[in-house]
Amino acid sequence: MNYTVFDYDIEFTQIQISIGYIFSINDSYKMAFAVGYVDLDLEQDTQLSSYWADNIGNVLPEDNNNFNFGKDNYGANEVMLSFISSFKLTNKINLDVRLDYVDINESSTSLTGELNYKFSPLFSVFADLFSTGDEDQYGLGVRYYF
């Protein structure tokens, strides 16, 4: 029997800092424009192992193969432009829709929907869904307002 093990390890870090201006249209709707800085770091490690075993499952050491494709690193720092629409659903809950443009390798436009719960004037927690068309991500976070 032949067994193949594919080991794929990804480590992804994204740091994003933005500054912008909020336009208050009415009590329940705000829109904002922002300029930000995005720092991305991606590291992946890929390894393929193939080995033979007898019918009982005992590994036959003479026929083992390990292929290590090595680590690949990718990093980028770019400017991001953002447009945000914020809808106040209750005094403590907001729904934000965000459109971002970042020029990393090929230009990328993303759409984010975020549900935000303010438990004080300075702090909130949020859940979001992020989509670029090629990938979808979700997240949970804490935000500090100053």
Rank of each mutant, 00 (worst) to 15 (best):
N2M: 00
T4K: 11
T4R: 10
F6Q: 10
D7M: 03
Y8M: 05
D9W: 12
I10H: 11
I10V: 13
F12W: 09
T13W: 00
Q14E: 08
I15A: 04
I17V: 11
I17E: 06
I17H: 06
S18M: 02
I19C: 09
I19T: 14
G20Q: 04
G20K: 06
Y21S: 12
S24E: 08
S24C: 04
I25P: 01
N26E: 12
N26S: 13
S28Q: 15
Y29I: 03
M31D: 03
A32Y: 10
F33Y: 15
V35M: 01
Y37K: 06
Y37T: 07
V38H: 03
V38I: 12
D39S: 14
L40W: 03
L40I: 14
L40C: 06
D41P: 05
D45H: 14
Q47C: 14
L48H: 06
S50C: 03
Y51S: 02
Y51H: 03
W52Q: 08
D54R: 02
N55F: 08
N55H: 09
N55L: 11
G57I: 08
E62W: 07
D63W: 15
N65P: 00
N66P: 01
F67P: 04
N68S: 15
N68P: 13
N68M: 08
D72V: 13
D72S: 13
N73A: 13
A76V: 06
N77A: 11
M80I: 14
L81W: 02
S82E: 01
F83V: 15
F83H: 07
I84S: 05
I84E: 00
S85V: 02
S85A: 10
S85Y: 06
S86D: 15
S86N: 14
F87P: 05
F87H: 09
K88A: 13
L89T: 08
L89F: 08
L89R: 04
N91M: 05
N94A: 04
L95E: 09
D96S: 06
V97M: 11
R98H: 05
Y101A: 04
Y101W: 10
Y101Q: 07
V102S: 06
D103F: 10
I104S: 07
I104V: 01
E106G: 07
S107K: 09
S108N: 13
S108M: 14
T109K: 10
T109P: 00
T109M: 10
S110W: 04
L111M: 02
L111Q: 01
T112Q: 12
G113A: 11
K118F: 15
L122N: 11
S124N: 02
V125C: 05
F126G: 01
F126I: 00
D128P: 07
L129N: 06
F130V: 01
T132E: 00
G133S: 07
G133V: 03
G133C: 04
G133R: 14
G133Y: 11
Q137C: 11
G139S: 12
G139R: 10
L140D: 13
G141I: 00
V142I: 07
R143P: 04
Y144Q: 02
Y145D: 12
